[in-house]
Design a protein around this nucleic acid. Sequence first.
RNA 1: GGGCACGUAGCUCAGUUCGGACAGAGCGUCUGGCUUCUAACCAGAAGCGCGGGGGUUCGAAUCCCCCCGUGCCCGCCA
Length: 583
Amino acid sequence: MFLALRAEVESALTGALETLDLPTDDLGIEEPPEGVDAVVASSVAFRLAGELGAPPAEVAARIADAVDADEYEYVREVRAQGPYVNVLPTPSYYADTLDAGRDDDYGELPATGEDVLVEHTSANPTGPVHVGRARNPIVGDAVARLLDYAGHDVTTEYYVNDAGRQMAVFTWAYETFDEDDLDSEPERGRVEYDLVRYYRKGNAYLEEAHPDAVEAAEDEIQSILQGLEEGDEETYERVQRVVDQVLGGMRECLLRLPAEFDEFVKETSFMRDGGTKELAERLQETDEAVIEDGAWQLDLSEWGYEKKLVFLRSDGTSLYTTRDLAHHEWKFDAYDRSVTVLGEDHKLQAGQLQAALELLGNDTDQLENVIYSYVNLPEGKMSTRRGTGIDLDDLLDEAIQRAREEVEKRLDDRIREDDIDADDVERIAEQVGVGAVRYDIVSKQPQKAITFEWDEALDFEAQSAPYIQYAHARSCGILDDTETPDEADASLLEADAEIELLRETARFPGVVDAAATDLEPHQIATFAREYADAFNTFYRECPVLADDVDPAVRRARLALVASARNTLANALDVLGIEAPRSM
RNA sequence: GGGCACGUAGCUCAGUUCGGACAGAGCGUCUGGCUUCUAACCAGAAGCGCGGGGGUUCGAAUCCCCCCGUGCCCGCCA
């Protein structure tokens, strides 16, 4: 309802300003602070005060007088409060919110018909997913869900980097070394934990072995790269044997979050279909293409890049960015918009990619990036190759373990109404543990650096998923054994806590809209926390099922609780966090 | 050296796009609350003037300039 109200306010203010013969370019619409009855406000009077030579308060009063609230469904009254023009909503604003909130899909916006591709994670298939890059699947999955809620047709893509040097190294190492050569047992039963040992062994060998031996190995690695470039089928099969196994394990790990993908697009596919070769030829024909030291490069100084972008090595082979250009033209072909979630270390590359795409005549307005900073350990960076880092599997296991302890502690602490068996404990522990990890990451602005600390990542009491999940479980506790009334009179909701909760409920679709526009799922995380605050206050102050509650009031409160349950469940759903029915 | 990010209570973070109502939460500290729909909760107290300095403005955490600190990037790697 908030979006509808705001639209009415825009129209009303524009009309009022036109009546007064004032400019309407900036309406100064904002949400008032806590403690103000208004739901929407405007600070436009400040700006017009100078022009009119009158104090802001007087201007605000004049504007408020010029609005006829009767023309609008949700605007009850527009009044000046000091220099602000404040808008109070009609009873139907609350009544319609109470109705809309009871739909299971409350918060989902109407379909836009826009096809959006969200590429995220795309971690090189070299080994177990570690926490350093865990931000990518968590933020990426939330962005995809958010755009879905905002009404777009979303496809998620994992771009598989199976053509680079590291995969050639991996393939060589996998074929060269035996189990006996490895100096450690796999840390886990899953396949990527087994195979990563070959990758690490290979890298160590290249650093430590006799120069002659290293040269022989390098020859083999080069022949793999050349084979891929030439589209040699046997080489391709050899590399894929490693890629598919490791990727399969990584997918299982990501599924625990859960992060799922509609498409796995392989980098080699743009070599095998000739797309990269054709693209390089088009680049060669541009005015910006130059040959330096035998390599084809792009002079992108017009776009502000000092560094030239090499797109063909002196031996004629393509580079990652060359293939990624073909990849992106493929995206542009198939989708209306393309969003990529990537680490800040790829920022320069992404900028050059965009410039090159423009150079090739693409409309890059359809391309957007969500950039995040890596999660580091107190002692430094995490690395798959060196084997330093916390595995995402370990983090999730630890989170679930700590959540299980909490659930069990609470079982001992108090007598509960609901019956919880061992399966329930396990389910709740998983929902809460994984949810806590996701919320910890998705609730922060992605561009801020995070240093990983176990106790911080696994703090269930701070502003965390469990707090929001708990509010949801409480709402279920009220609704579970109760008939949800068909009729509910919103005007009976008069307590501060009730009105506040209803106001917050009304905001939800608007928050989805804003967060999706900005590609910022953390806005949903902030909202969800504030919403849980409002619900918990309501829960404390307004009994629903108590005997002395008037039946009509009870019906209204039940409807409000149903709206709250849907809002909490869907806000969590946007973030990819489960909403337990009991905790 | 250059480019890009980030710097808000003791700690972890919202707020910065689009400048406006007293700068907000959680944790921690202190106080009170479970015969009442789940106390992973609620209510209250103390605590920051937004890295530093200039500027623009009626008004700056928010915009501009300089400086300091931290991170990332500046490969014929990905």
